[in-house]
Design a protein around this nucleic acid. Structure first.
Lengths: 131, 131, 131, 131
DNA sequence: GTGGTCTAGACCACG
DNA sequence: GTGGTCTAGACCACT
């Protein structure tokens, strides 16, 4: 699993970490049941603080992507048992985000079909890579 | 132009303002050349701080959506005049955002076609409303 | 609002704080829209760390009891707009907890009616005090 | 006696074990005087550590649910033999728990009668199953 | 050794 | 001045 953090970005480190782990799950680098690195080891690998990794893991747990087995570490959750509440909240957020992006595209003068084509292209990229 | 600010949201006020103005431009409520409300009047209308409105306008200017004509106020820019650099930067950000969303969707176990369908549905919504 | 923390308890401080604030909301000491003390002032009042208060507030926010207005502090949420997802998750947890308590009571040899009577008595207490 | 442990839960294993054994006692699967499985066999059956089972048994002993007869193992205690101190301590804990739950319910805006009805429903469930 | 919790002190975006 | 984020270092419960 390759994780790259940009210390200079204004996106919070723990959110960068979250995104990267979600990407790894999406692309199959991490499969359901796989163990994530321990907070300590990942923190030292990335040169960031333990608590930052901890927060990223906590967010992923709250979003249903991983489960924490207090005893032995963090594991990738099976998408099949994401709670429906989590899923619905996630879909609502996603629709909102897509809507905002579409509005921005329109405000720039871009036509509707082009926006959809762009979304399709990115979907292609997200669903093709590394698996 | 109807602007609604949600004081309870965790999204910064100036970004909410930015989104709402972009939405107005997208939906034609604001057309190229139109004057935006003055910072003072908009701030008092919304019951928020002058600085907040100012910051929103500055962001919109940096993104090419509006032009500031010195003392006479802010005006909606013509999409045709957007500098190519701004446009490209915007497109890159948008592609990145779409890619991240697609990855999240895939990580949740959703199929590619469904993601595209969702994007298309939101585009429909963004391109239909109010014009 | 009277908050009392027991440093010696094995219950985590942030959870004690959470319970106390929920109690204040339940009993009307805190009403929807009221401002909570700032994390800094509450932390210093209670003689605990700022981050501990912060975590308690974050939990309460996630559970829908309070809303954070990044700018001006934390406010008591209106129960009317607790998200249904949060409410349902809460009810499920509550039912589970009640079930576990009932089982314990039965294992001790106590009859069903007595358990219900006890629950009713505690409800009486919770719904009567301070309002 | 059917014991099911959820490795994914964030509840400590030894507490899950404790709850399950209490449930078995409550529902009559385990009756006063019955022998509990040996620490070794239960640990290997559940695929967990010896220490974990041991700790669960120790907690149950402290709470008066089981008695340890030296080398011959653990036996289900007769509720009649529960020391009054243990019983009272247990009742106090239970009342506290019920009170906290009632407060949470009230803070969410739920009416008193509904809370009692919920408690009664869970009692029904706890007192009906498996006997 | 693992995550959970707490303390301490710092900087930043926001308003 | 507010909460959000990050760093640092410590102790504890659980396995």
């Amino acid at each position: 699993m390759i994780i790259r953090i940009d210390q200079k970005s204004n996106e919070p480190l723990y959110l960068q970490l979250r995104s990267q782990i979600i990407a790894s799950i999406a692309q199959g680098t991490l499969e359901p049941g796989d163990a994530l690195p321990s907070v300590r080891s990942l923190a030292s690998d990335l040169g960031i603080n333990l608590h930052t990794v901890n927060k990223a893991y906590a967010v992923l747990r709250d979003e249903g992507y991983v489960v924490m087995r207090g005893r032995s570490g963090a594991y990738v959750a099976d998408p099949a048992d994401h709670g429906p509440a989590q899923t619905e909240a996630g879909l609502a957020r996603m629709d909102e985000a897509l809507f905002a992006l579409a509005l921005e595209y329109r405000a720039h003068g871009g036509p509707q079909e082009e926006f959809v084509a762009r979304a399709a292209a990115q979907a292609e990229r997200a669903y093709k890579e590394e698996r």
